[in-house]
């Protein structure tokens, strides 16, 4: 469970995130929408403890990220935007490293976690390949595997389907859906169809502020018959 209270982050004169608050419960898949630069990634970076908020807090399973960031990081799985990984390592070596840092110290425990993550994300054909030789779709899946590796209760995914082809997008979506039964998931996207496809809640942010926090159905009900991108455009009209 994730609880975000009044997060604020300022870069120089620009207030990137301006008092964002929301809650995500277990079983929820929250779609985090907004135009580019609206503060989606910054908010996620604060929840995961990578950035320190100027004010406000985020708690994961009751632990405050500003008080005990290491404990929160242990509970989270995080897929950063563009899925960074060490290019010179093979998929197996990389996931083995993540498993070791995540506390799977014995070789057998580590192997089991790595195999599980590789199985879930269908990486077995490339497990011995170095990450720099992989296509974008596979790289994205490595990022995914890394986030899932320790079977975390909370997943934060920054544009998980970015750069994937339609088939891969579909696959990633069904994977997220299948896992979300007992997890709290936040995913950011700017593909609006994704919201209808997998999310059971939507938050739209614009210029660092939450402008909508509801179910996809009630978002549609705002303007019956209109397409989602029209509603999105109306809500984020101030952000140009």
């Amino acid at each position: 469970m994730i609880e975000v209270k009044g997060l604020v982050k300022t870069y120089g004169p620009k207030r990137a995130v301006d008092g964002v608050s929301f809650r995500v419960n277990r079983g929820d898949i929250l779609g985090f929408l907004g135009p580019n630069g609206a503060g989606k990634s910054t908010t996620m970076k604060m929840i995961t403890g990578f950035l320190r908020p100027d004010s406000g807090t985020a708690t994961v399973d009751g632990i405050d990220v500003t008080v005990d960031p290491v404990a929160v990081k242990g509970k989270l799985g995080y897929l950063p935007e563009s899925a960074p990984a060490y290019p010179e390592m093979t998929v197996e070596e990389f996931l083995g490293f993540i498993a070791e840092v995540r506390g799977f110290r014995s070789a057998t425990a580590r192997g089991a976690q790595v195999d599980r993550a590789i199985g879930l994300t269908h990486l077995s054909p490339v497990r011995k390949q170095t990450i720099e030789t992989l296509s974008k779709g596979f790289k994205q899946r490595v990022g995914f595997a890394q986030a899932l590796l320790h079977d975390p209760g909370v997943l934060v995914l920054d544009e998980p389907t970015d750069g994937l082809d339609p088939n891969q997008k579909n696959e990633v979506r069904s994977l997220i859906k299948a896992m979300a039964v007992d997890k709290a998931v936040i995913l950011s996207t700017h593909i609006l169809e994704e919201v209808d496809a997998i999310c059971n809640r939507v938050i739209i942010i614009s210029r660092g502020k939450v402008v909508a926090d509801e179910t996809p159905a009630s978002l549609h009900a705002r303007k019956p018959g209109a397409r989602l991108d029209e509603i999105f455009r109306t809500l984020t009209a101030s952000d140009v």
Partner: peptide
């Protein structure tokens, strides 16, 4: 440069 710093500092390490 490669962004792995974000990966590293969202792992449970100080």
């Amino acid at each position: 440069r490669t962004g792995t710093v974000e990966l590293l500092f969202t792992l449970p390490i100080t």
